[in-house]
Amino acid sequence: MSVAFRREGDEEHLEPKFEIPIPPGPNLVTARGLALIDARLAALEAEIAELVQQGAEQSRIDAAKRDLRYWQTRQITAELVPQPDGETVEIGTQVTFRHNGKERTLAITGDDEADPAAGMISFSAPLARALLGAEVGELREFAGKEDALEILAIVVVPGATKA
């Protein structure tokens, strides 16, 4: 018998929907990052309720539920970092440094809070790993080059930690 005659619908030929991958390692977050996770969870719960009430397609509801599972996992595994002192580069600090003759400023955040376009990189990014633990005036190796990064300033990011 031909597939066309026995198939219930087109769903069986669609790609399977996998869970959203969880970044490896600890889920270190700033207070701001934890608040963003909480807000995302609340928004997804409201979205799912609205989709169910509207009788939306099951695939849309399933996608929202998959996102909800991801953010629930991120909330459960979140480890709030202690407040940085601003003496060394840590999660929750903003660091100004010189690399290849150019001055740059980046904030070090948790994985889910990172937004490179806005100058916020995850603590697990290679550049952040090279910067972590550095002090003002220190030279750091990066990309196989000695003294590639010169630390110019470190400040605690406002709102990154609980007061």
Rank of each mutant, 00 (worst) to 15 (best):
S2C: 06
V3D: 15
A4C: 03
F5E: 12
F5C: 11
R6C: 10
R7V: 06
G9L: 10
D10L: 11
E11D: 08
E11C: 07
E11V: 08
E12S: 09
P16D: 15
I20S: 12
I20E: 15
P21Y: 09
I22W: 08
I22H: 06
P23T: 10
P24V: 13
P24G: 09
P26Q: 12
L28G: 03
V29L: 11
T30C: 05
T30A: 03
A31W: 14
G33W: 13
L36P: 00
L36Q: 11
D38E: 12
R40F: 03
R40Q: 14
L41Q: 13
L41N: 10
L41Y: 07
A43N: 03
L44G: 04
L51T: 02
L51P: 00
E57S: 11
R60L: 15
I61Q: 14
D62N: 12
D62R: 05
D62Q: 12
D62L: 05
K65T: 03
L68P: 03
R69K: 04
Q75R: 13
Q75H: 10
T77M: 09
E79I: 12
E79T: 06
E79S: 02
L80A: 00
V81W: 05
D85R: 02
G86D: 13
G86R: 04
E87I: 06
I91W: 04
I91D: 11
T93E: 14
Q94S: 13
Q94K: 02
Q94L: 12
V95N: 02
T96E: 15
F97N: 12
R98T: 15
N100L: 15
G101S: 07
E103Y: 02
E103W: 05
R104L: 11
T109K: 04
G110P: 09
D111R: 02
E113T: 00
D115M: 02
A117Q: 13
A117G: 07
A117Y: 04
G119L: 01
R129F: 00
R129H: 00
L131S: 05
A134H: 11
A134C: 13
E135N: 00
A143C: 08
G144R: 04
K145F: 02
K145P: 00
E146S: 12
A148T: 05
A148E: 14
A148M: 05
L149V: 04
I151P: 07
I151V: 14
A153I: 04
V155D: 10
V155R: 01
V156R: 01
P158K: 02
P158H: 01
G159C: 05
A160G: 00
T161Q: 07
T161K: 00
